[in-house]
């Protein structure tokens, strides 16, 4: 196992006290594997990824749990040692390519800085390697691009530069936080293809965070669905699309527009919004928005349990269908 999160809990200090943003997330990423994390805005996907890198700022901290990366617990590693892992063994690409590059330095400047930090290459050798990386991510005329400033590049080009920067130190894990959200649809496909190619070539594992199930279907081997700071369903990508068990996952599936759909058909949506972190509902966190909610769902929070081999769900309906039905009738 390359990365294993065990019951990780991330909290933030606010004016109204401590708020739990990610509550007991456990997941595993194998070598060369691509894991997708899906969910609505505010459900804790990004915080999960930032927790792994410990980029939570001053107010956030990992309160409980372990982040095992190649046997080391990143949650307890001293800052100086963690810095060697950041950008070295774990690299990250962000959602906003337009603002992720420093406007006052050239592309070459920023790329070689990362390379010199984590490899033994210096000076000309580092610059040569940077050109090679730019070529690898499909940037035309890489030598000229080394002297360009970020403002003269398009979003797609900048994201390619970010990918080149992230991959230049041959990371074992690449965390991509919504890497294509800010890009045009045509560029999205190019970037996804590029990431796929580079995954094959470099053998890196990818943690892909997105709200776009299309991207998940395209890229991921394994999928983790998050809702309100918790994992609600975890399985391989085929099972997830064929047989989603959690009502939230089913809702997400139904809200994807299909090309064959009738024009008059309205797209399904999940009513309501993710509950605020300060005011979580009792019982199951999805229960107020769930079409199948029963009395038990309001009273007792379900745990994340396997219902089949390699398919974990956090839902009473999926875990105990008979009993859940009985309870539902009682409630009615």
């Amino acid at each position: 196992m390359l990365l294993e999160l065990k019951d990780m809990k991330t909290v933030f200090k606010t004016d109204r006290g401590e708020v739990t943003s990610v509550d007991g997330v456990s997941l595993r990423v194998g070598k060369g594997e691509t894991i997708g994390i899906v969910g609505e805005s505010g459900c804790g996907k990004s915080v999960t990824s930032l927790s792994i890198m410990r980029l939570l700022g001053k107010s956030g901290r990992i309160k409980e749990g372990e982040i095992l990366f190649m046997g080391q617990d990143l949650a307890k590693l001293p800052e100086a040692e963690l810095r060697l892992i950041r950008g070295g063994d774990i690299a990250m690409i962000f959602q906003e390519p337009m603002t992720s590059l420093n406007p006052v330095f050239t592309i070459g400047n920023q790329l070689t800085e990362a390379i010199q930090l984590h490899t033994d290459l210096r000076g000309k050798a580092a610059a040569g390697y940077a050109v090679q990386m730019l070529e690898k991510v499909g940037i035309p005329r890489p030598e000229a691009m080394m002297k360009s400033y970020p403002h003269s590049l398009s979003g797609g080009m900048r994201q390619r530069v970010m990918i080149a920067m992230a991959l230049s130190c041959k990371p074992k894990l690449l965390i991509a936080d919504e890497p294509t959200t800010a890009l045009d649809v045509t560029i999205q496909a190019q970037i996804l293809n590029l990431m796929k190619e580079l995954r094959e070539e470099m053998g890196a594992s990818i943690m892909l965070i997105t709200h776009d199930l299309g991207v998940i279907a395209e890229m991921a081997d394994k999928v983790v669905v998050m809702y309100a700071g918790q994992v609600v369903e975890e399985t391989d990508v085929f099972t997830l699309f064929e047989q989603p068990l959690h009502p939230y996952t089913q809702g997400l599936m139904k809200s994807i527009p299909h090309i064959e759909a009738e024009a008059e058909e309205t797209l399904a949506s999940i009513p309501g919004a993710v509950p605020p972190l300060t005011n979580m509902p009792k019982g199951c966190r999805f229960q107020p928005r769930c079409a199948f909610a029963a009395a038990r769902c309001q009273a007792e929070a379900p745990a994340l349990l396997p219902v089949q081999e390699g398919h974990d769900v956090r839902c009473w309906m999926a875990q105990e269908p008979e009993q859940w039905k009985v309870r539902k009738e009682e409630a009615v």
Partner: peptide
């Protein structure tokens, strides 16, 4: 974002402050 990106690349705090924040 580029400061966050710098931290995620493993740059040290003095480097971030003097080389990335100060020029801006």
């Amino acid at each position: 974002d580029y400061i966050k990106a710098g931290v995620s690349l493993g740059l040290s705090t003095p480097r971030i402050v003097f080389r990335h924040i100060l020029p801006n």
